[in-house]
Structures are given as structure tokens and as C-alpha cells.
Design a protein around this nucleic acid. Sequence first.
DNA 1: GACCAGGCACATC
DNA 2: GATGTGCATGGT
Length: 227
Amino acid sequence: MADVGKTLLAMYEAMRAHFGPQHWWPSSPLLAPHDRKLEVCVGAILTQNTNWKNVEKALVRLIEAGCMNVAALDAADGAHLAELIRPAGYFNVKSRRLKNFIARVRQVSDGGIDGFLDRPLGALREDLLAVRGIGPETADSIILYAAGKCTFVVDAYTRRVVRRHGLIDAGADYETVKALFESHVPPRAELCNDYHAQLVAVGKTYCHPTARCAGCPLARFPHRAEA
DNA sequence: GACCAGGCACATC
DNA sequence: GATGTGCATGGT
């Protein structure tokens, strides 16, 4: 516990050296630049408890149907929207969640996704969390990857890695884990972005109940082997 | 055929 | 306030 900040940065450097930059959003080639931010928002909702490959299929279907814009999503019939996003699973609930999100966007910024996102981080986060179907992880994903503002996204992988490395209590909630990173890691959006992606890579490849620590870029940092 | 994947809302205890 | 359950597809 000598210097948590140094440890967290060293862990990041080790992961990045091992996996290379992860190029998470907004690097998807699916859309023209002016629609990219909306695509990220939609993707953040569709990826809830869902493999990203399936989300991409749903995003392509929305784009091909001409629905990847605020007006079209707002006007779309819920059942039709559900059918379009079917490959991403949970299509009925996610259709409602998308409609809830779009309604909030129109309410706040008179229709534009840029106007909605380009506001102070606190107000934006509060608005997102008020949408039924958007929890803290999805809200922070939108803030970081769509709005490009610096916030730390915490997911199951993040929790598991910091817990195993003794950086946080077992019962720590979302905001506590988020605060750990935000109080020790330089507040740069690119860093928040790639750090989260690196943690996911470690979590998928090494840091889970059945995997071994051998080969993990974080193996040289103090940790427990068990889940 | 079981299990998991870039969660959240709601019911229940 | 902690824990359990439904939502649903596609890949391994």
C-alpha cells in the first residue's frame, strides 16, 4: 500500500506492454463520423450482459435499416426496433431501454446527440442514470467512449482484478472501485479508455476462476491465486 | 448441452 | 440492504 497510484500505473503499463493498445470505442468503422457518437451510445446499451460480436451484428442491422439516428430511433416502433436488435439478445428489454434513452436525449437537447453529450460530466451522468435501463456501468461507458470525457468504467473484470490484487475490499461497490482509480490515475480520457480495455483483456485471458496466473502480465504484482 | 458474454430492474427475504 | 431471478442470443 506504499503508493497505490504507482502500482496502478505500473499495472497498466504491464498490461499494455503485453496486449498492446486495445482500440475500444470510438474506433468502430461501421459509421460515418457524424453518427459515431450515437452508435457508441446504442452499443453501450446493447452490450449489457452480451458478447460484443453479437452487438456488432445488431448495430449493422440498425445502420442498414437507416435507424442509426436520433429521429429514426425515436419514431421507430418498439417491436420493429426489437426485431432489428435481435442478435444482441434481450431484445425486448433493450428496445425499451433504447427508446427511454432517446426520449431523454430529445428532452434535454432538442434532438441532437452532440448537444446531449456536450455538457458538464456531472449533469450528463445524472441524466443518464435517470434513464430506466441505464446503470452506472452503461452511463460511464457512454460518458467515456461517446462523450470522450474522463470517467472510469468499472465492470466485473475490473472488480475481480483489483480484489485479487488486494487493492480493494471484497464487498466494495461500484462507486468505491471507480473512486480508487480516479483518485490515483491521471485524469486523461485516453488513459481511462485503454486502462478499462486492458483490464477486460486480463480478465478474459487470465484473471478468472479457471485460469492460471502463469503468463499474466500482472503475475509479478502481489495477488491471490483464487477467485 | 452447459456455460458465458463489455448489466439492469424488480421481487423477495 | 443483500440476494435471487428474468431477460435471450450466439459462440465455445
